[in-house]
Design a protein around this nucleic acid. Sequence first.
DNA 1: CGATTCTTTGACACCTATCAATCTTAGTGG
DNA 2: CCACTAAGATTGATAGGTGTCAAAGAATCG
Lengths: 233, 233
Amino acid sequence: MSSCDTCLVRNRAICSVLETDALDELNRIGRRKNVRRGETVIWEGDDAPIVANVIDGMLKLTTATGDGREMIVGITYPSDFIGRPFGASSSNSVTALTDAQLCVFTRSSFDGFAKQHPGLEHELLERTLGELDRARDWMLLLGRKSAAERVASFLIEMSKRLGGRACEGPTGPADRFELPLSRQQTADILGLTIETVSRQLGRLRDAGMILTPDRRTIEITDWAGLEHESERG
Amino acid sequence: MSSCDTCLVRNRAICSVLETDALDELNRIGRRKNVRRGETVIWEGDDAPIVANVIDGMLKLTTATGDGREMIVGITYPSDFIGRPFGASSSNSVTALTDAQLCVFTRSSFDGFAKQHPGLEHELLERTLGELDRARDWMLLLGRKSAAERVASFLIEMSKRLGGRACEGPTGPADRFELPLSRQQTADILGLTIETVSRQLGRLRDAGMILTPDRRTIEITDWAGLEHESERG
DNA sequence: CGATTCTTTGACACCTATCAATCTTAGTGG
DNA sequence: CCACTAAGATTGATAGGTGTCAAAGAATCG
């Protein structure tokens, strides 16, 4: 029995398009790997020797300036694919936000496998196109939105992402959810400072739009108000 | 003789991976289209009925907030691919920055063709991965760099892009080049206002790092200085 | 329970946006 | 061809939003 049979994301990860034989073959070149929160799996600028499926947990993709300013350019969820196939060195680091479980392949073995399985490449293409759309949407937020709009947009986005991911299928946006991010990491996603994020969250709380029972959980109590905030601070 | 035989970018566009038969077939479902500077080819939110290869000219990809603030999220050059294949509606508009020539396909016909030609999908995947890297690099600029750093980074990027595109192959960064962008469009790429862009260009000129013989052409006279500016305003 | 880390809150400064005026360039019609 | 007009770019003055610096308050972990 291949370990794919017990995989939590076998129906959602890119492998889901593969036939049994191909899945067996892929299983032979992959291996499970557990990583602890905070552990970095891929380093920016590295030769990026690995790619992986995310089985469980969340990870951040980051880039940094020469003098250490950091930006989170993506977040991955279970069933997402990480790493940079096909020859380029990785342009960002990948670090676990929570304890996580990966299904890891060497880049070269994955590249070879993918080229012989067009269905897999098609699936990867569709996901990459989706990631590109998402990245470009985020560029609008970073380039043109105020701090107030950014924080409100972020809460709405996280609510949708965290609410719609259950294995039972999409459940819609969650009114209440736990952020897997510190204030610093939130700031690194939004292109702000921790102080500004903190103040904006306080403002939304004072305005009665959200509750913050503890510093990691958010409860949205006024969707209309929050959505209004997300489009004109 | 198919029109592909006379195509300016036949060796660089995604079609370059196709065999003769496949190229003929693709040629049958595509058509040439000339667009004038300022003309919009694809509208944000549309069903995105077309995709295309850029044969000549440059175009911008844009998204906008509900109240009209605009952001340029990408620029395309000859041999680039535009549009959103595979079912999603387009998340950005595509507008010509210069007069341009396209090789247009209906999305549905292109989708069908691509699925039967894995080599084409592979090429598209590689390009999309590259675009994603580029978009994420830009997120660092938008989220973490000062106006001075942004403008300097922009000039360096444009120099490399415009210098390295000749059909004879890469020629390296150009010391002198003509921006296909107005100040407003430059601001829309950098997440700044026209006034700030103008002031930063003036500052670089006063510092002797660039010359601005007319408002569209830039000459870089101090690469080391400009590169220094791009990393700590 | 103490120490460390993270977060919040406050005071202040600076960068960039905004508003406004001038100057330049490009386009148009006489 | 030139004046006129409109659009784009520059320059200046001002104000507001965020960053920075600093301190105090929670939460986490040993």
